[in-house]
Amino acid sequence: MVLSMDRWVGKVAIVTGASSGIGEAIAERLAEQGMKVVGVARRKDRLDALAQKTSGKKGKLYPMQGDVSKEGDILKVFKWTRDNLGPVHVLVNNAGVGCKSAIEDGKTEDWLQTININVVALCMGMREALKDMKEHNIDGHIFNINSIAGHYVLNYPRIEIYTATKHAVTALTESMRKQMAVQISKVRFTSISPGLTDTEMIEDAKKLNLIKDTSPVLYPEDIADAVEYALSTPPHVQVHEIMIRPTGDAL
């Protein structure tokens, strides 16, 4: 199998949650590989800094402020992308949040926010990307950044809602793979499920004593490697699920 990113050079990608962590690493990597990358996040200053950092690369990063919990913002991102760059070829649904509210004493608004961002926003992104891909006959690729918590229940307190949303991501990605097969579509779907990764979310977990400072971790660049690998496989190869753990992880 020959691995190559050549067919994606000059093509359009949208990456959500691109202002830090995994999303930032993926957006930077795709720009380095020659793609036109729309980086979406609420923190515009962080996106502007990333655009400056990647200036002079083979591709280009376009910073766009947006809150994926708002449908209007998602629609605005896709419309701007279509009008200014063309239809999307690659979508990376990376934006996500944890949830500190447990079932027994949690706040409904916290649960709804987590479900809205981790599940509903992901679905809206897939819907809009598929519209472009179908209308323009694009054999695109959609990535859903998942978690090992999307495959089994971790023995951590107060992450019931988060775990449920990540199980939903697993089910949705598999469902869409089968839908595309029924429709004889060549749009590929990949769920990437990292273990503990050195991001802002892990810092919150440390503050809550859910994990230790000495726990083995992955780095955002490791997840960007996985995205690049899946994209670089030939069109007839669908890498549907990648689970990544840090060496020494006993979870």
Rank of each mutant, 00 (worst) to 15 (best):
V90G: 04
T81P: 02
S175R: 10
S175T: 12
I117P: 08
C123K: 10
T163H: 01
A121G: 01
V119F: 06
D110C: 02
H151Q: 15
F143I: 10
L154T: 13
M176T: 14
V120H: 10
E135Q: 14
Y156V: 12
L196N: 11
I115Y: 01
K131G: 04
Y62G: 12
M180E: 15
N118E: 08
S175C: 11
K58H: 15
L85C: 03
A95D: 06
A168D: 07
V119L: 15
L91F: 07
D105P: 11
M201W: 09
I202R: 14
C99E: 05
A171Y: 06
K79L: 10
N94G: 04
I117V: 09
T108S: 10
T170G: 05
I184G: 14
S69R: 03
Y62Q: 05
N116E: 06
I74R: 02
E135Y: 09
F78A: 00
A171V: 08
G59R: 03
L91A: 07
K134T: 14
Y62S: 07
P87K: 01
D73R: 03
K166T: 01
G195S: 05
R82N: 05
D198E: 14
S69L: 00
E71C: 11
K70A: 09
T199R: 12
K131F: 08
D132R: 09
I74Y: 00
T197C: 15
D83W: 06
I184F: 15
T173R: 02
S185P: 08
Y62A: 10
W111H: 01
A129E: 06
N137D: 15
R188L: 03
L75S: 12
V153R: 14
C99W: 03
Q65V: 10
G106P: 08
V119K: 03
K100G: 13
E174P: 07
V68K: 07
K76L: 01
M133K: 09
